[in-house]
């Protein structure tokens, strides 16, 4: 079921990248998802992807473009107007979650990611739900 979609994760922390790989491999059966380790040349790189990802997960605190800026670029491109774009954040501040919602993200998943909860949340997102996962 998960393997019908293509995923992109933008994350600069190598540990988080590895955790994501493990969770996707063992919890979702997805091997080798596409991961960008910075937001450098973001649009150029994403437009070069084939196949085009249907689900994009963006780290918020990343350089040179932050999560909001990447979202803005994606939403201004017709090809990504309906792509599921999820924010991944370590923040527990509700102000930030509120900001994410207002900015136009389709959902947010709070770190730490968990092998037990992440696959279920992805399932909800694929089913078309907006997930605002701010659980501890």
């Amino acid at each position: 079921m998960f393997d019908r979609y293509h995923y992109l994760y933008v994350e600069d922390d190598p540990l988080s990248q590895e955790i994501m790989r493990m969770i996707m491999a063992h919890g979702m059966g997805i091997e080798n998802p596409v991961i960008f380790d910075s937001s450098q040349d973001f649009m150029k790189r994403i437009l070069g992807l084939n196949p085009k990802p249907e689900i994009i997960m963006l780290d918020i605190h990343i350089t040179p473009l932050d999560g909001f800026e990447m979202l803005g670029l994606l939403r201004s491109n017709r090809d990504f107007r309906s792509t599921k774009i999820i924010a991944l954040t370590a923040s527990v501040m509700n102000e930030e979650i509120e900001k994410l919602r207002l900015a136009g993200f389709d959902g947010a998943i709070a770190k730490p990611l968990s092998l037990h909860t992440f696959p279920a949340l992805m399932q909800q997102i694929i089913a078309g739900e907006n997930v605002w996962h701010v659980a501890q």
Partner: peptide
């Protein structure tokens, strides 16, 4: 506060996940 929550939780995220992965036999 904002950076605390970010800075503390990111490494803890790795600690918890890798411990779990090892424990699960992965």
């Amino acid at each position: 506060l904002a950076s605390m929550s970010h800075e503390l939780r990111t490494p803890l995220n790795a600690v918890l996940n890798f411990t779990e992965f090892v424990g699960l036999g992965l």
